[in-house]
Design a protein around this nucleic acid. Structure first.
Lengths: 231, 231
DNA sequence: CTATGGATCTCGTAG
DNA sequence: CTACGAGGTCCATAG
């Protein structure tokens, strides 16, 4: 990976046309030829970039560019589309390169989908006698995470979040309103299940008759591990 | 901006839990405290990151971390949520900082919205006698870019793209199907307008009776400039 | 291979 | 401020 700190202007032409006026920025050239132009703020999104597969060539500036003080020009072209990036470098402040090797990559864990799968598999976590009807139960306004029955046979809609906040309660409320208008389903009660439940969300949920359940992710995973060990 | 090349492992805990095994990576610390962890490939998205507003603190490793060869630990915490990032640095290969100043920011040009405004202003580009009804004409399935009438008074729905591809034709087709079911609007014809129209898109459009118009962005802008000069 | 939906989405704009 | 839609979306998975 090559990292250059330089005073530069950048022009992109592809899906849209965009221009970055002259300023000092960080330019990152990755092993696959992709280029990122970062400023000293904002989010993780670069000001401008070229995604792989693409090729990067350092060329001499045109006459008019040289007149304006351009020392070097990077021409980056996408291999498939005709997107192109032109980086006009006026002054190089730093230019270094390092061999990083191939990255082993990110390991994700504990996403909502995983929580949902674990809870569906161990639905008794919600209480004795609970029985799964199905995951991702479709309604007109979207899928309910889990639909199940409690010990008395009442239908229960479960909304799962890693972090239980107000918008999750609102979402579940909309599902419950809709489902309770369906005579084939009604009455339907709700459970708001999350690893953490914010006090405001808990208050709102309980005020609406929605039960709150705090999920212990490690415990759910532990049950899983134990069961797998039995085989 | 601080740029560090280091052998490190990273753990994120927030909306999800994620882990990056030990490897050499680029760490970028921006002026607002935000941190980006980049590998030497992939897209512009970092492997892991913390968005502003957040704070970054360099602390001594725990005893068990020190035993595993951790030289320093970065603790990055989001100011509003309790998202946190822990970067365990085993070996620093490079550590530099540069003052980039405030970036003047990206200037976008030629986006679909601008094309739409220009074409609406110069609707006669589509042919003599064309008259604008309105931009962003709302339908149940979304807004039609431009609705106008041709010289014979027939309603025309115009879909605008910078690059005309098949999905744009499909989009316009859906609008036309819907609008032609409305007796107050029908009959409605379609125009697919773009700076470039891919052969497949043109074939599909014309097969469906949709007229294709290639827009000359610079010419439309030129008309604009000329008119402004008149005042 | 393409199609589809989620995202630690980000980013703008309208209300 | 929040809500909503678009993105040079990116990204994984399913088919």
């Amino acid at each position: 990976m090559r990292v250059v700190i330089a005073k530069c202007s950048v022009d992109y032409d592809g899906r849209l046309t965009a221009h970055l006026p002259l300023a000092t920025r960080l330019l990152m050239v990755k092993a696959d030829g992709s280029v990122l132009v970062h400023s000293d703020g904002g989010s993780y999104k670069p000001l401008n970039w070229m995604s792989p597969p693409c090729t990067m060539a350092e060329v001499a500036p045109e006459a008019d560019e040289a007149d304006e003080g351009v020392a070097a020009v990077w021409v980056v072209r996408h291999t498939k589309s005709d997107d192109r990036l032109r980086v006009r470098i006026h002054e190089v402040i730093s230019d270094t390169a390092h061999d990083l090797g191939v990255d082993p990559g990110l390991v994700k864990d504990g996403v909502e989908a995983h929580l949902q799968a674990l809870l569906a598999e161990h639905i008794h976590t919600l209480g004795d006698g609970y029985a799964l009807i199905r995951r991702e139960y479709m309604t007109a306004i979207g899928p309910v995470d889990i639909l199940c029955r409690d010990q008395s046979g009442i239908t229960v809609a479960v909304e799962i979040k890693r972090r239980g906040e107000i918008d999750g309660v609102e979402q579940l409320t909309r599902y419950l309103d809709l489902m309770n208008r369906d005579p084939l389903l009604a009455p339907v009660t709700g459970i708001f299940a999350a690893q953490q439940i914010k006090p405001q969300a808990r208050t709102l949920a309980e005020d609406r008759g929605i039960r709150c359940v705090v999920l212990d992710y490690d415990a759910l995973k532990g049950i899983d591990t134990t069961e797998h060990r039995l085989f």
